[in-house]
Design a protein around this nucleic acid. Structure first.
Length: 216
DNA sequence: GAGTCGCG
DNA sequence: AACC
Protein backbone atom coordinates (compact mmCIF):
# COMPACT_ATOMS: atom_id res chain seq x y z
CA UNK A 1 0.00 0.00 0.00
CA UNK A 2 2.77 2.40 0.95
CA UNK A 3 4.64 1.30 -2.18
CA UNK A 4 1.63 2.02 -4.36
CA UNK A 5 1.24 5.43 -2.74
CA UNK A 6 4.91 6.22 -3.29
CA UNK A 7 4.68 5.10 -6.89
CA UNK A 8 1.66 7.29 -7.54
CA UNK A 9 3.42 10.12 -5.79
CA UNK A 10 6.47 9.71 -8.02
CA UNK A 11 4.38 9.67 -11.15
CA UNK A 12 2.64 12.83 -10.07
CA UNK A 13 5.78 14.82 -9.40
CA UNK A 14 5.81 17.77 -11.73
CA UNK A 15 8.30 20.29 -12.94
CA UNK A 16 8.66 22.65 -10.01
CA UNK A 17 9.64 26.30 -10.10
CA UNK A 18 11.86 26.83 -7.04
CA UNK A 19 12.68 30.51 -7.47
CA UNK A 20 13.07 32.94 -10.35
CA UNK A 21 15.40 31.16 -12.77
CA UNK A 22 15.48 27.92 -10.74
CA UNK A 23 13.58 24.75 -11.55
CA UNK A 24 13.44 21.09 -10.49
CA UNK A 25 12.83 18.56 -13.25
CA UNK A 26 11.82 15.32 -11.51
CA UNK A 27 13.08 12.18 -13.22
CA UNK A 28 14.54 14.12 -16.13
CA UNK A 29 17.75 12.05 -16.15
CA UNK A 30 16.15 8.64 -15.56
CA UNK A 31 16.39 7.39 -19.13
CA UNK A 32 20.11 8.25 -19.18
CA UNK A 33 21.02 6.54 -15.93
CA UNK A 34 22.45 3.29 -17.36
CA UNK A 35 24.65 5.24 -19.76
CA UNK A 36 25.72 7.68 -17.05
CA UNK A 37 26.76 4.88 -14.68
CA UNK A 38 28.66 3.15 -17.47
CA UNK A 39 30.53 6.37 -18.24
CA UNK A 40 31.35 6.97 -14.57
CA UNK A 41 33.38 3.77 -14.22
CA UNK A 42 36.45 4.79 -16.22
CA UNK A 43 36.24 8.37 -14.89
CA UNK A 44 36.56 7.38 -11.24
CA UNK A 45 39.21 4.87 -12.22
CA UNK A 46 41.39 7.61 -13.74
CA UNK A 47 40.44 10.28 -11.20
CA UNK A 48 39.32 8.61 -7.97
CA UNK A 49 36.98 10.23 -5.47
CA UNK A 50 38.86 12.16 -2.81
CA UNK A 51 38.00 14.35 0.17
CA UNK A 52 39.15 17.91 -0.46
CA UNK A 53 40.32 20.29 2.25
CA UNK A 54 38.77 23.74 2.58
CA UNK A 55 40.85 26.92 2.86
CA UNK A 56 39.96 26.84 6.56
CA UNK A 57 41.68 23.46 6.90
CA UNK A 58 38.59 21.26 7.28
CA UNK A 59 38.13 18.06 5.28
CA UNK A 60 34.89 17.87 3.35
CA UNK A 61 32.63 14.91 4.11
CA UNK A 62 31.64 14.63 0.46
CA UNK A 63 34.14 12.85 -1.82
CA UNK A 64 34.71 14.53 -5.17
CA UNK A 65 36.17 14.08 -8.59
CA UNK A 66 35.74 15.84 -11.95
CA UNK A 67 35.59 15.32 -15.65
CA UNK A 68 35.71 17.86 -18.45
CA UNK A 69 38.28 20.45 -19.45
CA UNK A 70 38.23 22.04 -15.99
CA UNK A 71 37.71 20.61 -12.53
CA UNK A 72 36.78 22.31 -9.26
CA UNK A 73 39.29 21.85 -6.47
CA UNK A 74 39.80 23.17 -2.96
CA UNK A 75 42.87 23.21 -0.76
CA UNK A 76 44.45 25.46 1.85
CA UNK A 77 45.09 28.05 -0.84
CA UNK A 78 41.45 28.40 -1.83
CA UNK A 79 38.80 27.25 -4.29
CA UNK A 80 39.47 27.25 -8.02
CA UNK A 81 39.01 25.51 -11.33
CA UNK A 82 42.03 23.86 -12.89
CA UNK A 83 42.83 21.79 -15.96
CA UNK A 84 44.67 19.07 -14.08
CA UNK A 85 43.87 16.61 -11.36
CA UNK A 86 46.16 17.54 -8.45
CA UNK A 87 46.38 13.85 -7.46
CA UNK A 88 47.87 12.68 -10.74
CA UNK A 89 48.83 15.93 -12.47
CA UNK A 90 46.99 14.52 -15.50
CA UNK A 91 44.21 16.32 -17.34
CA UNK A 92 40.79 15.44 -15.96
CA UNK A 93 39.02 12.63 -17.83
CA UNK A 94 37.08 13.89 -20.83
CA UNK A 95 33.43 14.73 -20.37
CA UNK A 96 31.39 11.88 -21.87
CA UNK A 97 29.14 12.87 -24.77
CA UNK A 98 26.05 11.77 -22.87
CA UNK A 99 26.88 14.16 -19.99
CA UNK A 100 27.15 17.11 -22.34
CA UNK A 101 23.93 16.16 -24.13
CA UNK A 102 21.98 15.69 -20.93
CA UNK A 103 23.29 18.87 -19.29
CA UNK A 104 22.43 20.96 -22.35
CA UNK A 105 19.02 19.35 -22.72
CA UNK A 106 18.18 20.06 -19.07
CA UNK A 107 19.48 23.64 -19.26
CA UNK A 108 17.47 24.20 -22.41
CA UNK A 109 14.37 22.78 -20.77
CA UNK A 110 14.88 25.30 -17.96
CA UNK A 111 15.22 28.18 -20.41
CA UNK A 112 19.01 28.39 -20.77
CA UNK A 113 19.72 27.62 -24.45
CA UNK A 114 23.36 28.70 -24.61
CA UNK A 115 24.81 26.56 -21.86
CA UNK A 116 28.28 25.23 -22.70
CA UNK A 117 29.43 23.13 -19.72
CA UNK A 118 33.20 22.95 -19.28
CA UNK A 119 33.36 21.51 -15.80
CA UNK A 120 31.61 18.46 -14.41
CA UNK A 121 31.96 17.97 -10.66
CA UNK A 122 31.00 14.53 -9.38
CA UNK A 123 30.16 14.36 -5.68
CA UNK A 124 29.73 11.15 -3.73
CA UNK A 125 27.69 11.28 -0.52
CA UNK A 126 27.87 8.36 1.89
CA UNK A 127 25.68 8.18 5.01
CA UNK A 128 26.68 11.16 7.17
CA UNK A 129 27.97 13.28 4.27
CA UNK A 130 26.61 16.78 3.88
CA UNK A 131 27.27 20.05 2.12
CA UNK A 132 26.99 23.23 4.13
CA UNK A 133 25.18 26.24 2.70
CA UNK A 134 27.32 28.00 0.13
CA UNK A 135 27.24 29.98 -3.10
CA UNK A 136 28.89 28.94 -6.36
CA UNK A 137 31.08 31.95 -7.05
CA UNK A 138 34.21 30.49 -8.61
CA UNK A 139 32.95 30.61 -12.17
CA UNK A 140 34.12 33.45 -14.40
CA UNK A 141 30.90 33.30 -16.41
CA UNK A 142 28.23 34.67 -14.10
CA UNK A 143 25.39 34.26 -16.64
CA UNK A 144 25.56 30.51 -17.18
CA UNK A 145 23.34 28.32 -15.00
CA UNK A 146 24.23 25.37 -12.79
CA UNK A 147 22.85 21.96 -13.75
CA UNK A 148 22.68 19.32 -11.01
CA UNK A 149 21.77 15.65 -11.42
CA UNK A 150 20.91 13.45 -8.45
CA UNK A 151 21.45 9.68 -8.43
CA UNK A 152 20.97 7.01 -5.80
CA UNK A 153 19.84 7.69 -2.24
CA UNK A 154 17.45 10.64 -1.87
CA UNK A 155 18.67 13.75 -0.09
CA UNK A 156 17.20 16.96 1.24
CA UNK A 157 18.42 19.88 -0.83
CA UNK A 158 18.31 23.32 0.75
CA UNK A 159 17.72 26.25 -1.55
CA UNK A 160 17.93 29.68 0.02
CA UNK A 161 18.32 33.23 -1.16
CA UNK A 162 21.13 35.65 -1.91
CA UNK A 163 21.94 36.15 1.77
CA UNK A 164 23.14 33.35 3.99
CA UNK A 165 20.41 34.01 6.53
CA UNK A 166 17.58 34.01 3.98
CA UNK A 167 15.08 31.20 4.60
CA UNK A 168 15.65 27.94 2.73
CA UNK A 169 13.23 25.78 0.80
CA UNK A 170 13.69 22.05 1.31
CA UNK A 171 13.46 19.82 -1.73
CA UNK A 172 13.77 16.06 -1.62
CA UNK A 173 15.95 15.13 -4.57
CA UNK A 174 15.43 11.59 -5.81
CA UNK A 175 17.28 9.33 -8.21
CA UNK A 176 17.09 10.87 -11.69
CA UNK A 177 16.01 14.37 -10.63
CA UNK A 178 17.66 17.39 -12.22
CA UNK A 179 17.82 20.88 -10.74
CA UNK A 180 18.83 23.88 -12.84
CA UNK A 181 19.41 27.36 -11.43
CA UNK A 182 20.61 30.54 -13.04
CA UNK A 183 19.51 34.09 -13.76
CA UNK A 184 18.16 35.75 -10.61
CA UNK A 185 18.85 32.62 -8.55
CA UNK A 186 22.34 31.92 -9.89
CA UNK A 187 24.01 32.97 -6.64
CA UNK A 188 21.47 31.62 -4.20
CA UNK A 189 22.89 29.82 -1.17
CA UNK A 190 22.30 26.09 -1.31
CA UNK A 191 23.38 22.92 0.46
CA UNK A 192 22.54 19.31 1.23
CA UNK A 193 21.47 17.96 4.62
CA UNK A 194 23.31 15.04 6.17
CA UNK A 195 22.63 11.93 4.11
CA UNK A 196 20.66 9.34 5.99
CA UNK A 197 21.65 5.70 5.98
CA UNK A 198 19.37 4.07 3.44
CA UNK A 199 19.70 1.81 0.46
CA UNK A 200 19.11 2.47 -3.21
CA UNK A 201 18.56 -0.56 -5.46
CA UNK A 202 21.10 0.55 -8.08
CA UNK A 203 23.66 2.54 -6.07
CA UNK A 204 23.57 1.04 -2.60
CA UNK A 205 23.99 3.45 0.30
CA UNK A 206 25.40 6.23 -1.88
CA UNK A 207 24.14 9.40 -3.42
CA UNK A 208 25.93 10.75 -6.46
CA UNK A 209 25.50 14.34 -7.54
CA UNK A 210 26.80 15.40 -10.93
CA UNK A 211 26.95 19.16 -11.53
CA UNK A 212 27.80 21.04 -14.68
CA UNK A 213 29.22 24.54 -14.92
CA UNK A 214 30.37 26.91 -17.58
CA UNK A 215 33.47 28.69 -16.32
CA UNK A 216 34.22 31.12 -19.16
C1' DG B 1 38.30 42.94 8.71
C1' DA B 2 35.45 39.90 6.05
C1' DG B 3 33.92 35.67 4.75
C1' DT B 4 33.24 30.83 5.49
C1' DC B 5 31.50 24.18 -0.11
C1' DG B 6 33.90 23.78 7.77
C1' DC B 7 32.80 22.88 12.83
C1' DG B 8 30.54 23.49 17.68
C1' DA C 1 36.79 29.76 16.00
C1' DA C 2 40.70 29.73 13.06
C1' DC C 3 42.54 31.00 9.18
C1' DC C 4 42.85 33.60 5.06
Amino acid sequence: MADLFDQLNDDNRQRQLIAEGAVCLPGFALEYVPTILEALGPIVEQAPFRHLVTPGGHTMSVAMTNCGSLGWVSDRRGYRYQERDPLSDNAWPAMPEIFLTLAQKAASEAGYQRFKPQACLINQYLPGSKMSLHQDKDENNKAAPIVSISLGVSATFLFGGLRRDDPCQKLILQHGDVVVWGGASRFCFHGVQTLKDSEHSLLGRRRLNITFRQIY
